[in-house]
Structure formats: structure tokens, C-alpha cells
Amino acid sequence: MQLKSIGQQVVAIVGASSGIGRDTAVKFAERGAKVVVAARSEPGLQSLVAEIRNLGGEATYVIADVSDFQQVKAIADKTVAEYGRLDTWVHTAATGVIAPFEKITPEEFARVVDVTLMGQVYGAMAALPHLKQEGRGALIHISSMEGRRSLPLQSPYSTAKHGLEGFLDALRVELQHEKWPIAVTSILPATINTPYYNKVRTKLGVKPTGVPPYYQPSLVSDAILYAAEHPTRDFVVGDAGKILDLVQRVSPALADSLLLAIAFQGQRTNEPKSADAPNNVFEPIAGYDKVEGDFRNLSIPSFLDNLDKNPPLKWGALAVAALGIATALGIFGKNEI
């Protein structure tokens, strides 16, 4: 499957007013792509388009709530009307309620699923006809490591991300069966330093935080741009996410014990915050139209992501590791004899 170079692409980015989406939009534009950005926050979109144009890029915006299919469809339609086609669809929009399950209302749970899962489903529904019209392209959906391993206190978000992984698995095989050269990628970030934890609703009594360590949004946007040119099934961003994924695969009970030890206190700061504080669950809120959140001091580098962008190096490293393990086992076996 051959995807266009980024400089030749028309890209729609949903959930672009802040965080990963905002950083991704700027990077696509810097490399010559034409971009259409969408979110609920018009001030955030206006400032983003102005930033891109000041850099010499081409961009326009669409205001949309992703829980409404017609509004999502309008993003894809606007992209084609403005630039003649759609090559890559990037979907980052999400919201959350951080609280014990018993304190979450049915309306709150449903809203998180509507935005974080159904919004992504609507995105694929809206984008696919245009990608098929073009004859190739990429669907890039921002999932989460919570799509592989749920976290306590984040049951609606974890539910939505698990559902997204199931949806993408089914869609990917259907497109392969129909022989469409359309890449379907799931990006699964670990804890990322975006304004997400400023904007979501919390019932912990304090401002929430992700379980450290944090990684900077640029790691995720770099993975997205890589997937836009290189068909990629999934991409776990952040070494801690890769470790958690391995633990979950080897022993879910061990992952349970690990999270029991660190995830409850690890998602709490010491900053008081009430349940009725402004949040973005049902409406956008002002003041957070930026890329980074408040946890840069907890951010660390990630070393293994570069292996995922270099498959020969990745498989070579794995082969060396396997050979080393086999050699060690052989030595131990001889010693036992």
C-alpha cells in the first residue's frame, strides 16, 4: 500500500483546537499539507488557522461536535469542497469523567462514549467515501493505552477506547477483504502532557492527573505523521505504555496489582477542584487552546518509539535480544548438566 507524501496530502484533523490535534495540524502544514481543522472551540480553531497561515501554510476550520454525525460529515464535505479531495483523516477528539464508577451518572457515561467512541465511528463513516473516491488514503484514530488496559477511575473513557479498538479491528479487515488501499491506524499513547486533565470533569475533589510518567505531545504527533506516510496497524507511544501493554498480555492479574498500588493516588494532585468546576464534557471551555498541559516537569523521553518508525532496526533488535536470551538459556542449561 502506497500513501502520498505529506506535502501532497489534504488532511482533516478532528479535535484540533488543543493538545495532540493542534500540534499535529501545525506539523502537517509545516511539511506542505493542506489542512482542515475541526473542534467545538471556535477561538481555538481561529488561532490555530492564523498560526498555520503565518507559517505560510494552507488551512481552514469547521466547528463541529463529534457526537453529531451530520456535523462530522460536514468536516469531510468541507475538506473536499475546499481542496478537492481527502487523503488522510486524523481523529483525536475525546472527553472524560474521572471519578469512581458509582459517582458517574448515566448521562455522563453516555456522553463520554458518544464523543470518544461514536465520534470516531462517525469520523470513519464520513471520511471513507471520500478516501475511496480518491482510491487510497489513511484513517488515523487516536486511541489510548486504555484501549488495551483500563484504568480505575476512568471507566467511561476506558470503555470508549476498548470499543474503538474493536471497531478498528473489524473495519481494517473489511477494507482488506474489499482490497481497498486504505490504511487504518490506531495510535495508542501512554500518559501525554496535554490540557486533557484541565478540561475533563472530575469528582475526586482535586484536579486529576494521568498516572506518571508523562510524555510530550510531540511524540504522538510525530507518530501520526509517520503513519500518514507509512501504513501502520498500531503504534504505542511512550515506553511506559509499551511496558504496560506487555504486562497486560503476560499477566492481567499482575497489571491489576500494579494499578491497585499506583493508580488511585497516582491520578490525584493536591490542587482542590470541585465537581461543578468548568469542564468540556458537554460544552467547550475557554482557556486551554494550547498544545501542552501542566505536567512538563513530569515528562520524560521515550526511546523505543524510534524502533517502531524503523521496522528493520526494530526486528533486528528483537532478533539480537532473542539470540541473547537463547544463548543465555543454553549456557544455563550446560551449567545445569
Rank of each mutant, 00 (worst) to 15 (best):
V14R: 03
V36I: 15
P195R: 05
G333R: 10
Q71K: 10
L313E: 08
L298G: 01
V320K: 13
E30R: 13
Y214D: 05
R148L: 15
D256Y: 11
Q2W: 02
D276I: 07
G324S: 11
S18I: 04
I20H: 06
V90L: 00
Y197K: 02
F295W: 15
T24F: 00
G135I: 12
A190R: 03
I337F: 10
D276K: 09
D87N: 06
S67R: 06
I63K: 10
G266E: 04
I182F: 00
H162M: 13
L139H: 04
K103P: 03
G330P: 00
S218C: 08
D77C: 01
P217H: 06
K179W: 10
S5C: 11
L219H: 15
V35Y: 06
V90M: 02
S251W: 07
A74I: 06
S144I: 06
A76K: 03
D256T: 14
D222S: 11
R53V: 14
F109N: 02
F295P: 08
V281D: 01
S274C: 08
R53Y: 12
G15E: 06
A138C: 10
M145I: 15
L117Y: 11
G57R: 04
A38P: 07
A99F: 12
S299T: 14
Q265W: 12
H162P: 09
D294P: 05
P152V: 14
L139E: 03
V113S: 10
T60F: 10
E292V: 09
A228I: 02
V291W: 08
A321E: 10
S144Y: 02
L131H: 05
S302I: 14
L258T: 12
V26Y: 06
G238Y: 09
N279V: 04
R201M: 04
A124T: 05
P208G: 08
P278G: 01
K242D: 01
A99M: 08
D308L: 14
V72F: 03
K132H: 07
H230P: 03
V80F: 03
G324A: 13
P152Q: 04
D65G: 03
A94Y: 00
S251M: 01
L323T: 15
A240T: 09
D77P: 02
P181M: 03
N270D: 15
H230V: 12
A317W: 07
T202S: 14
P231H: 00
D305E: 08
K290R: 15
F69A: 15
K314V: 08
K73V: 02
I337Y: 10
M125K: 12
D245Q: 10
S17R: 01
S274R: 08
K73M: 08
A228Y: 03
L204R: 08
L323R: 11
L131A: 00
Q120P: 05
R111W: 05
S17I: 01
I243K: 13
P312R: 05
Q9S: 06
A228N: 01
F332R: 09
S41A: 00
T185Q: 01
V14L: 05
G137I: 13
N198P: 04
P278R: 03
H141M: 15
D305W: 09
L254C: 05
K103N: 10
H91T: 11
S274P: 02
N306I: 15
G324N: 09
F109A: 07
Q133G: 06
D256L: 11
D77S: 07
D245S: 15
L259I: 07
P189N: 05
E58W: 04
A275Y: 11
